[in-house]
């Protein structure tokens, strides 16, 4: 049976790879929702908060293509994605608070945040949060 089920690491990174290879996808981040730590990240996304921070560290803006490495956080863009993760994490937490204020027995299933440039698709779970940033094509 073990051979039927692929190695969890592989299937995880394959899933992330497939996600990030979809057209328009800019970045994917998996966050631990209790600790807020980044479990996995790929792609490149520069937050304006990171830009201001990057003025100090000039090396931060070396772009690199998405990696399929399931464990390693990218050395170059990880700080950007960490920023993104921090912002998203804060956003999810405040939304959770909003939902629990509205109905304490309710919970978030999906957050789709459309901006003029991007769409953030956030799937919060009990323990983890999956975030995908993709560009809006066309309009």
């Amino acid at each position: 049976m073990s051979q039927l089920v692929p190695d969890p690491q592989n299937s995880f990174s394959a899933t992330i790879a497939r996600l990030s290879s979809k057209t328009g996808v800019v970045a994917t981040v998996v966050i631990d929702s209790t600790l807020g730590s980044v479990i996995q990240s790929s792609g490149h996304y520069t937050t304006s908060r990171a830009v201001t921070a990057a003025k100090n560290t000039a090396s931060a803006n070396t772009a690199r293509p998405a990696t399929e490495n399931g464990l390693g956080q990218l050395s170059t863009s990880s700080s950007d994605l960490d920023e993104l993760a921090a912002i998203v994490w804060k956003y999810v937490k405040s939304t959770e608070a909003l939902i629990s204020d509205l109905d304490s027995e309710d919970e978030i299933k999906l957050l789709r945040l459309r901006t003029r440039k991007n769409e953030l698709v956030i799937a919060p779970d009990q323990k983890y949060i999956l975030v995908v940033v993709h560009e809006i094509s066309g309009s």
């Binding site: 992330i16 996600l19 979809k22 328009g24 698709v121 799937a123 323990k127 983890y128 999956l130």
Partner: peptide, 13 residues
């Protein structure tokens, strides 16, 4: 979690 959430996100995309 990955299985579930990635399915949802892919559907969304």
């Amino acid at each position: 979690f990955v299985e579930r959430s990635s399915k949802v996100i892919e559907r969304a995309l």
